[in-house]
């Protein structure tokens, strides 16, 4: 149903006010990489509308461009053609600093390979988005509040016993949970998770998924999750497959 609303950007302005715009959507999104004279197309016109509070799963073959799509949606990369809209407003052509700000405030990222900072312990890693958001003085003033916030989230992901550990002292599952905690600490509106269970055993994967579902249900967090595991993917509201640079809807569950 939301796909029907994916209109041309110029016409979008004329849409009836009663219809709320999608939380995050893409319009005719294309992405090429250049290899010398060759244009390697990865995304060829991706159209997607994600409702507020939706849990969307993306599956696709390796190399189909799932990570690329997530990066473009999360403003880590810019599209070659097309637009990314947040609450109906175009965001991919905003100035660099505004995009930095949006990344920090609106999006939470969970990466395929955790990507924790090796010099910092778990607690500090979780606090980085807040440190980035606030000035040194502002952070210093509210450091206790922030620390409590981080500890609360770490408790939610079950890492209370590992606060002072460095990433290389953690198991894969623990690192993934730390990465999830980091993506949530800044209270984002949209969580972009790139194979959050990719390197975990089935049990731990289920645990993580449960965590995400909880967040989605209890806090209304919009989640876009890329995964290989179709059984995990099926527990989302909606499941799309990325093939040859385009999306096809597989399942529109409740």
């Amino acid at each position: 149903m939301p796909e029907l609303l994916s209109l041309e950007p110029t016409r979008r302005l004329m849409q009836p006010a009663s219809v709320a715009p999608a939380h995050l959507s893409t319009v005719a999104l294309e992405k090429y990489y250049r290899k010398g004279d060759h244009k390697i197309p990865v995304l060829r016109g991706v159209e997607i509308n994600i409702r507020r509070g939706e849990f969307l799963s993306i599956v696709g073959q390796s190399g189909s461009g799932k990570s690329t799509l997530l990066h473009v949606m999360g403003l880590l990369d810019s599209p070659s053609v097309g637009e990314v809209l947040l609450d109906g407003d175009r965001i991919d052509d905003l100035p660099q600093t505004t995009r930095d700000e949006l990344r920090n405030r609106v999006f939470g990222f969970v990466f395929q390979f955790y990507h924790l900072l090796p010099e910092l312990n778990v607690l500090e890693n979780v606090l980085t988005p807040l440190m980035i958001r606030h000035s040194m003085f502002g952070y210093w003033k509210r450091r206790r509040e922030f620390k409590a916030q981080a500890e609360e989230i770490l408790e939610k992901v079950g890492l209370t016993h590992r606060l002072k550990h460095k990433p290389n002292e953690l198991s894969g599952g623990e690192m993934q949970r730390a990465a999830i905690a980091r993506s949530l600490v800044a209270k984002p509106e949209i969580l972009l998770a790139d194979e959050p269970t990719g390197n975990l055993d089935a049990g731990t994967g289920q645990e993580i998924l449960g965590l995400l579902r909880n967040l989605n249900e209890q806090e209304g967090l919009t989640i876009v999750m890329v995964t290989h595991d179709e059984s995990l993917a099926r527990s989302a509201h909606r499941l799309v497959r990325l093939t040859e640079g385009r999306l096809e809807v597989l399942n529109e569950a409740a």
């Binding site: 999360g74 930095d100 920090n104 990466f111 990507h115 900072l117 010099e119 988005p129 958001r133």
Partner: peptide, 16 residues
């Protein structure tokens, strides 16, 4: 390099 990528992904500006 990778850590710098992480920081930027988390919203750190180039200036930062």
């Amino acid at each position: 390099t990778r850590d710098i990528g992480i920081l930027k992904a988390l919203g750190a500006s180039s200036r930062g």
